[in-house]
Nucleic acid binder design. Sequence first.
DNA 1: CATAATAGTGACCAACTGGTCATTCGTCAA
DNA 2: TTGACGAATGACCAGTTGGTCACTATTATG
Lengths: 283, 283
Amino acid sequence: MSKKQQILDAALQLFAEKGIEATSIQHITQEAGISKGAFYLSFPSKESLIKEIIDSFMKEIVTEIDRIVNGMELPDEKLRLYFHAQLALLEKHADFAKIYAQEPMHALNEEIMEKLIHYDAWIDRSLLSLLDELYGEPLRGRRYDLLISIKGFVRIYSQLVLFHPYPHDIEKIAELLVEKTNVLATYSQTAYLTEDMVELSMPGPEEVTTQEKLLSVIDELLEDEQHPPLISESLSLIAEELQSEAPRRAILHGLQANIYDYAPANWLSYLLKKYEQKKSPDA
Amino acid sequence: MSKKQQILDAALQLFAEKGIEATSIQHITQEAGISKGAFYLSFPSKESLIKEIIDSFMKEIVTEIDRIVNGMELPDEKLRLYFHAQLALLEKHADFAKIYAQEPMHALNEEIMEKLIHYDAWIDRSLLSLLDELYGEPLRGRRYDLLISIKGFVRIYSQLVLFHPYPHDIEKIAELLVEKTNVLATYSQTAYLTEDMVELSMPGPEEVTTQEKLLSVIDELLEDEQHPPLISESLSLIAEELQSEAPRRAILHGLQANIYDYAPANWLSYLLKKYEQKKSPDA
DNA sequence: CATAATAGTGACCAACTGGTCATTCGTCAA
DNA sequence: TTGACGAATGACCAGTTGGTCACTATTATG
């Protein structure tokens, strides 16, 4: 395991245990079994460590949710998968989830906070499109209230799973939440929230799917050097195609399919899909 | 305004702004316009300041909710009042609410955390009894899921009101939440949570309604010295009655009625009612 | 083997923390 | 005017923090 990974693991555990602010670099380095100075060989600052942890997890979550919502299952099944994914990710990354659930906004850098809000809005937008697909026109006017209610459900049951010591059955919880959602969508009549009360109106992933941003993500991946040949080749070709005068949609699409199942490049896959949608919004 | 109150005000504002841990006593004292040393004339430590702030607000909330649930309105109206009270308290004490909503458990002393959980469980128990009153037998088996769902609703809409800059209409939100609750109670069928998964099974306000605890609360109130004559007299008589061989229920009940509308003694009123219920559980 | 380059160390730094205490200030009664 | 006494002060303390850097250990290269 690389020094960097050692540090990340130790930090994650300590952050979850005692909070970000309360965890000193001294603690982290001694937990990781290295000297304090060595920390600064892997990270330029404590803040960048925090940023890296939060960023990597949020990217995984956004990617996973997006794949479910855009998958090919029946809408009802997708909703179940949505809930299940939320809870499964929670169990898989309990350490991170504890940080996310408990850390006060204050402790975080402004930039990180903004990113968190963005990621959150992306997930919300995914869920909202799923709700529209599921309930269509009759939901109009109540869609934001349903969205928020679902977030409330997920949050409260997540907290339960996270902090209550019990062998929880997340399959069952997911089904329960599907039923609750259906009941609300079907029988509830009143509405309160309007579009402008929900912040997710503007941001969108557009701003990060510029050519340069994509190229920098690819560069970062290529620097690792440890990919299978097909992956490396595809990555290089994607970069090449992006830099060309008029990137060909079909080529990018195909290359993206090459890396779709390669976990370390999931985020790039996600960004490429958004890039594609931006370039040809007709689909 | 007393020095103590100045400190409390300044601290509350700074805690809400930047978090408890990130707020130093230096900040508080300079915000309050006093010297650092003066702080320690009013509070023995930073921790006791935190404790006092949290304690006083939680007591107000618990008392308020309890009064609504045990009020004489129709059950349906009580539920609306419950939601409205939650949101109104939120607006009234936005500073504190921000602390409560955002502060990580870590930052808080073990003792304070335990108290918070207790207070929370008291509120839950109040709400649960209201739900039983409202929906009765048909809800059996789903009552804890409904309880949790309502908590999710309250939490997510609270967050919206608290952090989204908008002139929110809490009357409307309260009505919306009543409707959502009714829909869930009526049409939802599945259940997940059982009694032992919800922590509120054991604690209860029993342990703080011992004679000594009640007397200490009365002493604390009497030390303030600034009550109307009827109040002071009633307080003394309550203490006297409590210390007698066999406290007479009717006397305590009457004396408690004397102080029922006197805000500074609301917490004592609440405790006395619980004490009474403990002594004669037949009612 | 010697040399160069890289990885790793921990004493050290300035800034800040919660908390203390000898000193000073302000306001009374005599 | 004096003395006295509680209220208020802020320099000071020990401890911790994120971060630096002159140094040493390890490894790769010729």
